Each structure stands twice: as structure tokens, then as C-alpha cells.
Simulated scan of single mutants.
Amino acid sequence: MKSTGVIRKTDVLPVELRRTLAVTAWDRFEIFTDGETIILSKYDAACTFCAKLLSRS
């Protein structure tokens, strides 16, 4: 799995899927690729030093 370095808000997902998975407007996803497969993973930015989650903006 290879990270693309792209992080997007949930506007990339259809509203029906967001409702089914309980994804909010504030959730962000990191995009990975694996061959011809695209993988979306919820992204939570955390401080490198203390692992405290950073505020969502």
C-alpha cells in the first residue's frame, strides 16, 4: 500500500455512503493506492511528539 499524500474531506463520498458509515462533515480521509485499488482511511492528525490529536479545521 502506497500513500498518495492526499487528504480530503468527505465530499469525495456519496451522501448515502456517508450516512451508512456515520461519516461526518469534519471527517477527513487519507488516500492510498495498492496496484489498481484505491483505499480510503479515516485521517486523524496527531502531534508527532505527544500523540495528542490536533484540532479539526
Rank of each mutant, 00 (worst) to 15 (best):
M1A: 08
I7K: 08
S55H: 02
R28G: 00
K2S: 05
R19E: 08
I31F: 08
T4F: 10
V6D: 03
T10M: 04
D11T: 12
L53W: 07
V23L: 01
K52R: 15
V12C: 11
G5L: 07
T24K: 09
C50E: 11
A45N: 13
I39P: 01
D44R: 13
S57I: 04
S55K: 06
F49A: 02
W26E: 09
Y43E: 09
S55P: 03
I7G: 01
T4N: 05
V6L: 14
K9T: 07
E36Q: 14
A25P: 02
K42G: 03
L40T: 10
D44G: 00
V15R: 06
D11P: 00
R28L: 05
V23K: 00
A51W: 11
Y43Q: 08
R28D: 01
A25D: 14
S3W: 03
L13I: 15
E30Y: 02
E36T: 07
I7H: 04
S41P: 00
G35E: 03
L40E: 09
C50Q: 10
D44Y: 15
P14F: 07
L17A: 10
I31W: 05
C47T: 08
T24M: 01
V15K: 09
C47K: 07
S55N: 04
L54K: 14
V15L: 06
I38W: 12
